[in-house]
Simulated assay, not measured.
Amino acid sequence: MVRSLCDTNPCMTHTTCEVSLPCCADGGSLSSVKAPQVSGVRVQLEMHALWQQFDQLGTEMIVTKAGRRMFPTFQVQISGMDPTAEYVLLMDFISVDNTRYRYAFHSSSWLVAGRADVVAPSRMHFHPDSPAHGAQWMKQTVSFDTLKLTNNLLDDNGHMILNSMHRYQPRFHVVYVDPAPSSSHLNAHRNFCSFSFPETRFMAVTAYQNHRITQLKIACNPYAKGFRTTDPQDR
């Protein structure tokens, strides 16, 4: 399932209108708001089945001071772009709620521990290939494998700053690069489309809390092979 977020603010940080279509038009008045270069964009989440496996257990993502990459990696297939137009692709993360959590090991569940901590500085992660023509973005899977998560509020490496024990929703943004400088600012609200996949929500942690998440990450993450057991009985 994908939910499109048609943000009316050029900075993509405030009021959003949510529709049940994987694009920025709902067939009504919104379709006339978005530029034609983005109004038909469709985005499909890669490794959807794996994301669902993690989501059913309650996905956790490690955040460290130095920064840690996500697994599963956020990857998408894009269609509906103008092949000759240029686009910038980027991601950000928003809090799911205003709550801080703690993990109860006796019940293997997350419990509310109080109000959320002070919101970390908001950042955007630009795909390193941006900007590029629509034809390039659509010909292959777009992967954000260089994106890293950190809990260091003073991070100067461009990593995404998150609070541990808080839930987050990744958001994916497609921005059309308007070739007319004079109108690019005025039309900023028309030139982008944002996508959200509920199954990619996760809890930011400094160490995995749910042992089933640990097992699934070790089993599926090719970079975790050093942690796998060689005992046939364990397999």
Rank of each mutant, 00 (worst) to 15 (best):
V96T: 12
I94L: 13
A85T: 00
G80Q: 09
M61Q: 13
M91V: 02
N98W: 12
M91L: 09
S79L: 08
E86T: 07
F93K: 07
E60C: 11
G67N: 11
T99S: 13
S95C: 15
P72M: 05
S79D: 14
I94Q: 13
P72L: 07
F93C: 09
Q75A: 11
Q77G: 08
Q75D: 06
K65R: 14
I62Y: 02
R100W: 06
P83R: 14
A85K: 04
L89G: 05
F71L: 10
Q77A: 09
E86V: 04
D97L: 07
R100G: 13
E86Y: 12
G67M: 10
G80W: 08
D92Y: 04
T64A: 03
M70A: 08
P72G: 01
A66V: 01
G67R: 06
T73G: 07
S95V: 15
V88D: 09
A85R: 04
D92P: 00
Q77R: 10
R100H: 15
L89S: 11
D92R: 11
N98L: 05
V96H: 12
P83F: 02
T73Y: 01
V88S: 06
T84C: 11
A85M: 01
L89F: 06
A85L: 12
D82P: 15
T84K: 10
D97F: 11
A85E: 07
T84W: 12
E60H: 02
E86K: 09
N98F: 03
S79V: 04
E60P: 08
S95P: 15
I62C: 00
N98A: 14
I78Y: 03
I62Q: 01
D97S: 14
R69H: 08
Q77E: 03
E86S: 15
V96C: 13
P83H: 07
E86I: 07
T73D: 06
F71K: 11
L89H: 15
P83W: 05
I94N: 02
K65G: 11
